[in-house]
């Protein structure tokens, strides 16, 4: 496993040499901040209206649990941004090593393919954490205001990492299949979009298949986290995707050696 850390460290170092990393982190921070403030303003407005209605009529049509709703919306948006950004992060993970010929270095070094895959995954996860870090101060701001739900926030961050981990693992696998980073990126977008949104088709269908289809949806499981529900089932769900992605990547790297390099 020592090797995995070496590879993860190198990966992270290479990320932060390229300007893309800074652009991605900045865009992510900027979009998160924009969503955060816009939605905050929106919910404050809604609750002001509700307050006024209660003052005038004595009741309101709005059923508001503002902190929970706000957090739910915010973290839902965060998951969309992840969906947008992570394929750009994972597209080159293995593809670049193949293109540069460094895969030949790695695979002729005394490390197991499993360590290589783990290292790549850890590196990307570390980058994801760096990317999420600038959103933390937003909640400090919320906490200063008094009304915040630390449990929901914590669960949502765990959800984001779980979701991101599953996306990275699958992106890593797609990357190991592709010799071209554009194809890798589009392939990953395809896989992740389908997996994320299959549940929206299920809500229309309304049949016994609903549960079945929902079960496969990233979104469905992720939303549980954003409601502050930390269930073992959802954690295992994402962990399974991660394990599957990493396992397939390892097999695929072994298969690369049988094909044209």
């Amino acid at each position: 496993m020592r090797h995995a850390f070496a590879i993860a460290r190198r990966e992270l170092r290479s990320f932060f040499v390229s300007p893309i990393a800074y652009v991605v982190v900045t865009i992510f921070a900027f979009l998160s901040g924009a969503f955060f403030s816009n939605m905050l303003v929106y919910y404050v407005k809604q609750s002001t209206i509700a307050d006024r209605q209660i003052a005038l009529v004595g009741r309101s049509d709005f059923q508001l649990d503002v902190p929970t709703m706000f957090l739910g919306e915010f973290f839902k948006n965060e998951s969309f941004i992840l969906l947008l950004v992570l394929p750009l992060l994972t597209m080159g993970l293995i593809t670049d090593e193949r293109r540069k010929g460094t895969l030949e270095l790695l695979l002729t070094s005394p490390l197991r393919p499993g360590e290589l895959v783990a290292g790549k995954f850890l590196g990307a996860m570390a980058f994801l954490s760096v990317m999420l870090a600038p959103t933390v101060p937003l909640f400090v701001f919320l906490a200063l205001g008094g009304a915040w739900e630390p449990g929901v926030v914590l669960a949502s961050y765990i959800g984001l990492l779980a979701l991101g981990g599953a996306q990275i693992a699958l992106g890593l696998f797609v990357s190991s299949l592709c010799e071209n980073i554009l194809i890798s990126a589009f392939g990953t977008y395809g896989v992740l979009l389908i997996l994320h949104f299959v549940d929206t088709s299920a809500t229309i269908a309304r049949s016994i298949w609903v549960d079945f289809i929902n079960f496969f949806s990233f979104n469905f499981h992720y939303l549980n986290f954003t409601r502050g529900v930390l269930s073992l089932g959802d954690v295992i769900y994402f962990a399974t995707y991660m394990a599957l992605g990493l396992f397939l990547t390892q097999r695929s790297i072994e298969a690369i050696r049988f094909k044209r390099s």
Partner: peptide, 19 residues
């Protein structure tokens, strides 16, 4: 098989580590 974004020293350190 080099990583263009690393310096020569960083690169050799990395290789030494995985070797």
């Amino acid at each position: 098989p080099v990583y263009p974004e690393l310096t020569v020293r960083q690169y050799l350190e990395f290789v030494a580590e995985i070797k």
